[in-house]
């Protein structure tokens, strides 16, 4: 993708973040680094500021102190609209559930990020065809593509969300407990497919989960608890 290999995919430096009115920061991260192409398991029980950290990494939240860079560019250097554009260009996100816009079809959902990112759209010769192909590989058959996303099963929704996050090859993929709503079989299958596709595209995967049993499939494990400063 032409980016300097020495640049970190995501890099946090002396980051302190707290919600307003609370004097002590919720998160305090002296340093955290995710290399390009790395698959990292970010472990931590719920309530440990995972969502906040993801908000910070994706530039939706800004820290009170410190810098967060994605592919060398700090969120703080950009204006709000530049951040929105940059996020659309370089990040793919998968949530725990309700990933899809319910009134759009599976296919429309998958193609949605391309409307916000010309960069990602430009990487695809035929976006719709490539979306169908990727959906097919993740087990979303052509019979499901036209259906409103709300009618898909949870497993199908998560896989569709994964396709949406992967399409157009964003460099960083953030997955926020994407398997917690799935049963064991679906969970393993989903993880299998996700990791295969991430390896194929060369993206960095930051996978947040409290389910330690999944950690073995990743290159590295980061314990969020190590960065938590305030007692619950």
């Amino acid at each position: 993708m032409g980016t300097d290999a020495r640049l970190a995919a995501v890099e946090l430096c002396d980051v302190k973040f707290g919600w307003r009115n609370s004097s002590a920061p919720l998160l305090s991260i002296p340093e955290m680094r995710f290399e390009q192409g790395e698959k990292v398991f970010l472990a931590g029980p719920s309530g440990y500021g995972k969502s906040t950290l993801l908000g910070l990494m994706s530039g939706v939240l800004l820290p009170q102190e410190g810098t967060i860079r994605v592919l060398g560019k700090g969120w703080g250097e950009m204006s709000a609209s530049q951040r929105d554009r940059y996020r659309a260009d370089h990040l793919g996100v998968i949530f725990q559930m309700f990933n899809l816009v319910p009134y759009l079809s599976a296919l429309e959902n998958v193609l949605l990020p391309l409307k916000f990112s010309k960069l990602r759209a430009a990487r695809l010769l035929d976006p719709e065809e490539q979306a169908r192909e990727l959906l097919g590989r993740l087990g979303i058959g052509s019979d499901l593509l036209g259906r409103p996303a709300g009618e898909l099963s949870v497993g199908e929704q998560q896989r569709t969300a994964a396709v949406r996050a992967l399409l157009g090859q964003p460099e960083v993929l953030i997955a926020d407990e994407p398997t917690s709503a799935l049963d064991a079989d679906n969970r393993d299958a989903f993880l299998e497919l996700l990791i295969a596709e991430v390896e194929l595209s060369g993206a960095t995967l930051i996978f947040v989960s409290h389910d330690g049993s999944l950690a073995s499939r990743f290159d590295r494990v980061v314990q969020l608890a190590d960065f938590r400063t305030v007692a619950r």
């Binding site: 709000a80 929105d84 554009r85 996020r87 309700f98 990933n99 816009v101 319910p102 990112s117 949406r164």
Partner: peptide
Amino acid sequence: RREMAVLRAIGAGLPQ
């Protein structure tokens, strides 16, 4: 609320 969060994550701005 979730729909909005999804749109934000995909790259929609606050103004949008």
